[in-house]
């Protein structure tokens, strides 16, 4: 069974297929004997103008939060980050912000790879199964939404 321990920025849905480049250390695993637990993605640095988009919070709320930062918060630029499935949502938010600013805002997108760690816990403690960890990669996007300098 797949489950996430705590809510967070994590975006990959429980049913998501294994990431294509999950590395060389593929572990032969009997799905009956192990529970796969996805750890949270690493805590990333957070400035006031960083927004980490997730798939749990309502889309409008996240968009409104960005708009508030740019309009009311007095920030000239914000960074919208999305990981895995949330990449789409991050892009959508950035494009929405740009569209509603009537072209005043510009976007600068960067991509990266984030290493994620999964824990494999033996279902039955009596058996000889050792707890294992597995790392895999997931793609992420970082979009700078900013007012260009005049």
């Amino acid at each position: 069974m797949t489950e996430q321990r705590t809510p967070g920025m994590s975006a990959a849905p429980p049913t998501a297929p294994a990431h294509p480049d999950s590395g060389s250390q593929a572990v032969e695993m009997d799905p009956v004997e192990y529970t796969l637990r996805k750890r949270l993605p690493r805590k990333l640095p957070k400035r006031r103008n960083d927004v980490y988009v997730n798939m749990k919070t309502d889309f409008r709320a996240q968009l409104a939060r960005c708009q508030k930062l740019l309009e009311g918060g007095g920030h000239r630029e914000i960074c919208v980050h999305g990981l895995g499935l949330a990449i789409n949502r991050a892009i959508n938010i950035a494009l929405q912000l740009q569209a509603s600013s009537q072209g005043a805002l510009q976007l600068a997108a960067n991509t990266s790879t984030v290493e994620l760690v999964d824990d494999l816990e033996p279902e039955d403690p009596d058996e000889a199964g050792e707890p294992m960890t597995r790392t895999r990669n997931n793609s992420a996007i970082h979009i700078k939404v900013f007012y260009p300098d005049p």
Partner: peptide, 27 residues
């Protein structure tokens, strides 16, 4: 397909070293 696109790019960047990148978002 956006996520897959980024994944492809990230893997290719690791395979072929020294690639400069420009990403653009649009509707």
């Amino acid at each position: 397909g956006v996520t897959k696109t980024i994944t492809c790019v990230e893997i290719l960047k690791r395979k072929v070293a020294g690639l400069h990148q420009v990403s653009k978002l649009y509707y």
